[in-house]
Simulated assay, not measured.
Amino acid sequence: MELNTIKPAAGAKHAKRRVGRGIGSGLGKTAGRGHKGQKSRAGGYHKVGFEGGQMPLQRRLPKRGFKSASLKYNAEITLADLEALGLDEVDLLALKQSKLVGEIAKVVKVIKTGELTKKVVLKGIGATAGAKAAIEAVGGSLA
């Protein structure tokens, strides 16, 4: 290989479209913009969703619902997850290290899905009423 022979791969480069450079180019005169109208003029365009003065779709539809921004900080684990974890003391850090909850989780709650046979002590972790009853039934507790 010589410095004077290197060139880009075939098809990697292509000529830019040169508009308004005469009839022969195929993009002369109106330069591919058609005739007249807002879109043919320099600087003439509208905002996203603009429908020519008609009430835009996003304003015709009713506002509905709400999605909390704090939901991403909430996580939940099941009784089956606690069983598989096999620790006798469980806190947020232990759950993050075992990858049962995401790294950004701040609030964790245990839900009643699956069975629990081992005694587990939860520290700083909430539980639903059913899950709490199941944990306390095997001798565990919530701290």
Rank of each mutant, 00 (worst) to 15 (best):
A69E: 15
K29I: 09
P56L: 00
V101Y: 02
Y73I: 02
L82E: 01
G32M: 03
S25K: 10
Y73N: 15
L100D: 06
S25Y: 07
A75L: 07
N74P: 04
K13H: 09
K36M: 09
G11K: 14
A9M: 13
G28P: 09
Q97N: 13
K72D: 04
A80D: 15
E136T: 14
I125T: 01
D88A: 08
A80P: 11
K99F: 06
K112M: 03
Q38A: 08
G65E: 02
L27P: 01
G20C: 03
K13N: 14
L85C: 08
R21H: 10
I77Y: 04
R21M: 06
V107K: 15
S70E: 15
L92E: 04
A31I: 02
K118M: 08
K36P: 01
G114K: 10
G53F: 00
N4D: 14
P62D: 05
A94S: 13
L122W: 07
V101C: 04
A134Q: 09
G43L: 10
E2F: 08
E76G: 06
T128G: 05
S40P: 10
D91E: 08
V108L: 07
A94Y: 04
V121P: 03
T5L: 12
L122Y: 05
A94C: 04
V120L: 03
P56K: 07
V121Y: 06
G28V: 00
G86R: 13
L57R: 06
M1P: 13
L79V: 01
V120T: 07
K13T: 12
K36S: 12
A15N: 11
Q58S: 03
R59A: 00
D91P: 09
G126W: 03
G34T: 07
R64Y: 05
A10L: 11
K99Y: 10
A12P: 09
S98H: 10
H14V: 09
H35F: 13
K39G: 10
I23E: 14
T5M: 09
L142H: 13
R18C: 02
L95Q: 03
A80Y: 06
R41H: 08
K106E: 07
Y45S: 13
R17H: 09
G34F: 07
K63M: 03
T5N: 14
E2H: 14
E2S: 12
N4Y: 11
H14Q: 14
A42F: 12
G53T: 01
T113V: 12
G37M: 11
A143D: 12
A69R: 14
L100H: 11
K109C: 11
E115K: 15
L79R: 11
K7T: 14
A12F: 15
K13M: 12
G65N: 01
G49P: 12
S68A: 11
K109M: 09
K36A: 06
E83W: 06
E115I: 07
K96A: 00
G130E: 15
K47G: 07
K109I: 03
D81G: 04
M1I: 11
K16L: 07
N74K: 15
G53N: 06
K119R: 14
A105E: 04
A94H: 04
G24S: 13
E103D: 15
V90E: 00
K132A: 04
V110C: 06
